[in-house]
Design a protein around this nucleic acid. Structure first.
Lengths: 232, 232
DNA sequence: GCTGCCGCTTGATAAATGTCAAGTGTCGAT
DNA sequence: ATCGACACTTGACATTTATCAAGCGGCAGC
């Protein structure tokens, strides 16, 4: 593991307050591994032996039931995923696969639990992190239950435009197929949803999207602080 | 607050490991209040000043967007709700209203944060509680995204029958209107969903439901440990 | 007893969403 | 260069779900 990678992990809010010493103990037995694209890292139902940290690349968290599958969220550097399963020492509720070639740091679950026991500040950081995760899922749930497909797409695009800090010309960070699943619709439906946003100044070209009428799009999307703002 | 109520709260996994002393400090400035049915306790977006604990009765957590509303979950005695907002000192993401006349214990948010700072064991309990909450929402999200309305109802009924420990003759604990919203469908649709379960031995009479063919219902519902089991 | 409200149901209809099938274009492997 | 796999799009169609309207039945208040 390169020193700059270690530095990035240490800078996560989860680990920032730890002593270097405690952080060293946490990483004992951990390993950083490079994976190709489209590799399954975690199978739903397996015991949570490691806390995973995306160092670079991207990871899709998804879930299956019968013959259906849905994308639950996307983890980007630098962030952890499946923290809750590690805490509860319970089976993973989601599967995970790389979207692209990715470096993943894997920390033994036992190290996390030991660190909590020995380091009160770390526990507090964990509480903070888990509360944030919880609020994210609640927002996602509201998004699905209160909005139509088109509305979810419109809000996703607006969120992206804020994130990418340019008014026109945003880039979709994931394949449309995956985006459809993340937004809770079929790929065909996503195509049609894009088409139905054309009157609102949305022009699509492959992975590039221009928003030529942000105000109009907002009047359709009606973004809400308590669904769309990642910091609320 | 009656001693037996205090005992029940102390017995929550969140507080069980606390010293009586620390628990006393936690409750300083708290108060127990009785509310009539259908009273709004919390408005989405308000600052999270109190951690709420349902002592008896029942509370519906719900959320609005534009002219739509959906119920997110039901809190029953004895349990806390909106813990995450309290931790983050952030606005509530959901509103709350009583379903019936209810007693609610309200603990000042500041007390919770102080207790975390001074009591490592309490922090660990909080981590555990939040991880459990997180996993609950993830399951709810999978339920909505992977299943049709009829499938969600079928699984809900099976869950109830396990909870109420009798094979036939279960009682719906909430109005059908609320149940519809909880399951993410319109009330009309819930009626039709019940009707379409008739061939699977489901007979409805007001709030009473008989399951005359649990095996058949299960073959339709295909319950999954990682969606329906509250302990997984 | 009425009477009006409300929860619930049912039917008719519309809107949203999914499925199936075909066709296009890209890209990487041979 | 050709081929095939695959992501994406589009159209036709089926299914699911919501909406609107009407009606039933219980129940609280007059």
């Amino acid at each position: 593991m390169r020193p700059e990678d270690r530095e990035q992990v240490k800078d996560l809010s989860l680990f920032r307050e730890m002593s270097d010493d405690a952080f060293g103990r946490l990483l004992a037995g951990s390993f950083l591994q490079r994976f190709p694209a489209h590799v399954v890292l975690i199978n739903e139902g397996a015991p949570a032996d490691f806390l995973h940290v995306v160092i670079n690349g991207g990871v899709e968290l998804f879930s299956n039931w019968r013959d259906r599958e849905t994308t639950m969220s996307i983890a980007r550097p630098v962030s952890t995923f499946i923290l809750a399963a590690v805490i509860k020492d319970a089976p993973y509720l989601m599967s995970a696969r790389t979207l692209e070639p990715s470096s993943i740091l894997m920390i033994p679950s036992q190290n996390i639990r030991s660190a909590m026991a020995g380091d009160a500040a770390f526990s507090v950081a964990m509480v903070d992190e888990l509360a944030a995760c919880f609020r994210e899922v609640v927002k996602a749930q509201k998004n699905v239950k209160l909005r139509s497909g088109v509305e979810r797409l419109a809000n996703y695009l607006l969120q992206l435009s804020v994130l990418q800090e340019r008014r026109k010309g945003i880039e979709l960070p994931i394949e449309k197929k995956t985006l459809a699943s993340l937004l809770g619709m079929s790929p065909e439906n996503l195509s049609r949803a894009f088409a139905s946003l054309k009157p609102y100044g949305v022009a699509v070209n492959g992975g590039s999207v221009s928003l030529n009428d942000v105000a109009g799009l907002e009047s359709l999307a009606k973004p809400s602080r308590f669904i769309d703002d990642p910091h609320s």
